[in-house]
Amino acid sequence: MTKTALVVGASIAGISSAYWLHRAGYTVTVIERSPALRDGGYKVDIRGAALDVVDRMGLLEDVRKARTDVRSGTVVDATGRRVASMDGDTFGGRTHGDAELLRGDLTRLLYDHTKNDVEYRFGEALTELPGGYDLIVGADGLHSATRALAFGPEKDYVHDLGYRIAIATVPNHLGLDREEVTYVGPGRTTLVYSTAGEATAKAMFLYEGDEKDLRAAYENQGWEVPRLLDGVDTATDLYSDDMCQVKMDSWHRGPVVLVGDAAWCASPASGQGTSLALVGAYVLGTEDSPEAYERRMRPFVERNQALGPANIKRMVLHTQGQVRNSMRMLAVMDRMPFKEWMLGKVMQPLHRAATAIEL
């Protein structure tokens, strides 16, 4: 008898899980509460073991074609003075063939790769755990309804790191051409970039505290921050949330198993959310039980989760003194002929974590 699986969430984790479960012999249905596939979104990186997963899906060439092609990165101070510049891959911590593309472009590639083999039902939310499925996969993100129904309230598993993130599409008033610019202030970091083929830009705001009003959080900040906030005011795709991690003793209960952010959100600061989703989906679909899936994934997840709290403290500097010292160090490093090598050393923990699993 054919086994059946219900996947909750047409996310990267969800669609990838659907692909591998179909390969494993399941008849798969994916439900997604949004009325259509979620396009757009911020840029994401595929690193380490996740590149092998994409290759095994037959999508590596398509992923490389969809790369953002961001060519350079610059750090500026409150007056807009350039402090340091580097090539795009060094700035983004990419090496060994890592690929950066827009989240929506990756989601679309995965969907097109599975739509003929998997049933998709958009505009359908999970309100109770249904019977009749051999497996129910919760791939519905940080605020997972599947997790709440099967394991209990969110507060028991979601841990706030003490920071917030906001992302939106804004006008490219700086005229960026496949460039990324970062401004750092005390407790406040702002990034804006443009990608190949996009007339607009994406802005990201990372900041300490729990202030939900972005303008209030960024009051009196320098550089182009006020103008970027004007762009956020008219954005139709603003995403804003606390920076959190999910910690659970088990990712499966009965027929329910969690994957991706629903199970182990490492936070955007880890830089590994997409790669964890891709690898987790592969392991779920290729291991012979939820227990085996969990045994193989947990050390990898824990290694990558550890990146989040460490990275966010480097991304958002607490005091004006820390900002000043960081700017001085970057300015000195910018004049050194081996700055790319130095930054590569800084990024080694990320790449060790990205490859810390055997598929």
Rank of each mutant, 00 (worst) to 15 (best):
residue 213 D to Q: 02
residue 267 S to Q: 07
residue 218 Y to G: 06
residue 202 K to R: 15
residue 86 M to D: 10
residue 319 T to I: 08
residue 104 G to V: 03
residue 302 E to R: 15
residue 320 Q to V: 01
residue 244 C to D: 08
residue 105 D to Y: 01
residue 151 F to S: 07
residue 37 L to R: 06
residue 286 T to V: 01
residue 245 Q to G: 04
residue 285 G to W: 06
residue 199 A to N: 11
residue 263 A to P: 08
residue 198 E to Y: 03
residue 190 T to L: 06
residue 349 P to I: 11
residue 231 G to P: 14
residue 105 D to N: 12
residue 49 A to H: 01
residue 163 Y to R: 10
residue 194 S to F: 00
residue 210 D to N: 14
residue 89 D to S: 13
residue 252 H to C: 05
residue 21 L to K: 05
residue 198 E to H: 13
residue 119 E to I: 13
residue 63 V to F: 14
residue 322 Q to S: 12
residue 269 A to M: 15
residue 258 L to G: 02
residue 112 D to A: 10
residue 108 R to M: 10
residue 73 G to Y: 03
residue 346 V to G: 07
residue 305 Q to P: 02
residue 250 S to E: 08
residue 45 D to E: 11
residue 258 L to H: 03
residue 220 N to S: 13
residue 243 M to Y: 07
residue 83 V to L: 14
residue 134 D to C: 07
residue 191 L to H: 12
residue 339 K to R: 15
residue 351 H to L: 06
residue 189 T to S: 05
residue 262 A to L: 07
residue 42 Y to G: 01
residue 268 P to H: 13
residue 222 G to M: 10
residue 318 H to V: 12
residue 202 K to D: 00
residue 263 A to R: 01
residue 338 F to R: 08
residue 154 E to T: 13
residue 23 R to D: 11
residue 282 Y to T: 04
residue 281 A to K: 06
residue 305 Q to M: 11
residue 317 L to Y: 04
residue 354 A to C: 07
